[in-house]
Simulated scan of single mutants.
Amino acid sequence: MRHVRVTWTHDFADEPVEILSELDEEDREGRKVEVFHGGRRARADASHETAATGLGEVPFPPPLPARRPARRRACRAGRGRC
Rank of each mutant, 00 (worst) to 15 (best):
P16V: 03
V58Q: 15
E25C: 00
R67K: 09
A42W: 08
D14Y: 11
R40W: 11
A44M: 05
H3A: 07
R31G: 15
E22P: 00
L64T: 11
R2I: 11
H3M: 07
R31Y: 14
E57L: 12
E34V: 05
G30A: 12
S21K: 05
R67C: 04
R31K: 14
R31E: 15
K32L: 11
R40S: 13
E25Q: 00
R67V: 04
D24N: 15
G30S: 13
A66Q: 04
L55N: 11
P69H: 00
H48Y: 13
L20Q: 06
A46C: 09
E18K: 07
G39C: 08
E34W: 04
E26G: 07
R31H: 14
P65N: 07
T50Q: 03
D27N: 15
E29C: 07
R40K: 13
G78A: 01
H37Y: 01
H37D: 07
D45I: 06
A51T: 07
H37G: 04
L23S: 08
A74C: 09
R28Y: 15
F60A: 14
G54A: 08
T53H: 01
C75M: 10
L55P: 10
R79L: 09
P65D: 13
G78I: 00
E57M: 07
R79H: 08
S47V: 09
T53Q: 08
A46H: 09
V35A: 12
E49G: 02
D11R: 03
P16L: 02
R40A: 14
D27L: 12
S21P: 00
G30Q: 13
I19K: 03
T7M: 02
E22W: 13
D24P: 14
A51H: 07
C75Q: 15
C82E: 06
E22K: 12
V6I: 12
R68E: 14
W8T: 11
T53D: 04
E57N: 09
F60S: 15
V58S: 15
E29D: 11
R68G: 01
F60G: 06
D45R: 06
W8Y: 06
I19E: 10
G39V: 05
R71Q: 15
V6Q: 11
A42M: 13
D45G: 13
R67Q: 14
G30F: 10
E18G: 03
P59W: 02
S21H: 02
P63F: 02
R81M: 01
F36G: 06
T7Y: 02
R31V: 10
V4Y: 01
F12M: 15
H3K: 05
G30W: 11
A70Y: 03
G56P: 04
R43I: 12
K32F: 01
G54V: 02
P65C: 07
G78V: 03
E22Y: 09
A13W: 00
V35P: 12
A77T: 09
M1S: 14
L55R: 08
K32T: 05
E15I: 06
E25I: 03
S21R: 08
H3G: 05
T50F: 01
T7E: 14
R40Q: 13
G78Q: 02
P61L: 07
V4F: 00
A51R: 13
